[in-house]
Each structure stands twice: as structure tokens, then as C-alpha cells.
């Protein structure tokens, strides 16, 4: 297997900076900021670190099950495809700023895309 994008951008030490970049973008974006208005910034950053680690191919234990459970409350609040599109877009901007190439950003977006149905609580095969 080739080196993961996670390792290419510097592994765990680089994740801290990546998460901050990403989180600032998310909090500045009117399309999605309201899903992140919780005051527990540490908890939110930890979750986003888990997300970035997963989509860049780093060590994680993400499953469809916990993606569903984690987002169920947000789906009730109106989380939809447009929000997922916005997050994937902000993820791409973050990686671009970290010097990741377009082709690899596409790979990351594809991984993020693969959990879309779980995040939105839909059955994937339909």
C-alpha cells in the first residue's frame, strides 16, 4: 500500500494544525457554523481530528454505525446534502492550504463521500 495522505502531511503532529485550520473555516461558514455553536470547543476539535484522520487514511475506528449515531441529532435539526457538500468543500480548501495536491484531495473527498449516507442516516444501497 502506498503512503497515506495522513502520513504525507505529517501524521499526528500535523493534525493539530490541520484541525484548527478546518475548524476556523467551519465556524466562519454560515452554511454550517450553526451546527458547531456548542461551547465545548475541545470536544468538537477532538471529533474533527477524528474525522480528518479518517478521511486522510490515518489510524481510526470509524464505522458506519458510529457515524450514524454521532449525526442523528443533527439530522433531526435539518442536516442535509448541502451541508455535507459544504464540509467536503471546506475540507478540500484546508488540504490545499496544507499543500496537498488536487488528485489527493479528490481521494480524500471520495472517502468523505463514502460516509455521506451514514452521516445523513440513509440506507446506502438504495
Amino acid at each position: 500500500m502506498s503512503t497515506s495522505i495522513y502520513e504525507k502531511i505529517g501524521g499526528e503532529p500535523a493534525m493539530a494544525a490541520a484541525v484548527e485550520l478546518f475548524y476556523r473555516k467551519v465556524l466562519s461558514d454560515d452554511r454550517v457554523a450553526h451546527f458547531f455553536s456548542d461551547v465545548d470547543m475541545d470536544g468538537q476539535m477532538a471529533k474533527q481530528k477524528g474525522f480528518l484522520t479518517m478521511v486522510t487514511g490515518g489510524p481510526n475506528n470509524y464505522t458506519g454505525r458510529n457515524m450514524r449515531d454521532a449525526h442523528a441529532k443533527l439530522v433531526v435539526k435539518g442536516l442535509d446534502d448541502g451541508h455535507v457538500d459544504a464540509i467536503i468543500e471546506l475540507l478540500g480548501e484546508t488540504l490545499k492550504e496544507l499543500g496537498v495536491g488536487d488528485e489527493e484531495i479528490q481521494q480524500v473527498a471520495a472517502i468523505a463521500e463514502s460516509v455521506r449516507d451514514d452521516v445523513l442516516g440513509r440506507s446506502s444501497a438504495s
Binding site: E12, M15, A46, T53, G58, P59, N60
Partner: peptide
């Protein structure tokens, strides 16, 4: 524990005495 690779920090513990390898405190 969760990731078992030093990333998720689920398994954080505290050293009472003795020396820790630096990689065990990375991040």
C-alpha cells in the same frame, strides 16, 4: 482505548513514577 495508534487519546493514563518514552506523550 480506540485507535491503538497514539491518535485518539482514549487510553490516556498518568505516570506516578518512572520515565516515559517521549512518543507516548506525542500530541
Amino acid at each position: 482505548s480506540s485507535c491503538r495508534a497514539g491518535a485518539c487519546q482514549s487510553c490516556t493514563m498518568r505516570a506516578v513514577s518512572g520515565e516515559l518514552p517521549s512518543e507516548s506523550q506525542a500530541g
